[in-house]
Amino acid sequence: MILSASHSIGRLLLLVLLTFALAGCATQVDRVDRDVPGDLSGRWNDTDSRLVSEEMIDDMISRGWIQRHQGRTGSNPTVIVGDVRNLSHEHINVNTFVRDIERELLNSGEVTFVASGVERDAIRSEREDQRGNVREETRSLAGREIGADYVLTGTINTIMDTEGRTEVAYYQVDLALTSLADNTRVWVGQKEIRKIIRRGMFRS
């Protein structure tokens, strides 16, 4: 009887070990299209960043300020992306959001876009480095940068509401385009995202 019990226990142990061993080989990577929403935690993610930047830049370039600028100067407005502050309750990678904005602005073809502060320093350093190191006819000269007409700044804010295991996260992104010449606002845009997050009661 002891023998049969120990056989059963042995088989059971083997089965448990096998299950654990197979479960250990379960890493899986699926490549998905960027348009497929990938909400895992309910936090701000790449889809939010992209959708907000696309919609806000669409709105920005469809307004009359571009035509007014072109009518006044005869050229496309030059824009620089300034400070976008994260005032939300999450650590949002503002850099990726700024990159999304820059890409949308550039691809619109309606504005001329100049590099922001940190990048400018690196470019100037590179230009300086060309002095004496590259053939004269291929060298980029200093003092030929284009000054921006407008600076785009903004904030990302959140309001959170919690009730039991359900949370409502309300994200509000505010962007403003300000004339560097006279500090007048030429465009103000706002985009909201509302997420309802229901957290499970149990885990495995």
């Binding site: 994260n86 005032l87 939300s88 309750h89 650590h91 959140t158 959170m160 919690t162």
Partner: peptide, 20 residues
Amino acid sequence: LDAARVEALQIDLGLRRIDP
């Protein structure tokens, strides 16, 4: 400072989850 502010908001959010 902005990132530190995020933590301050998370402290408040965490406490409101315990005591709304």
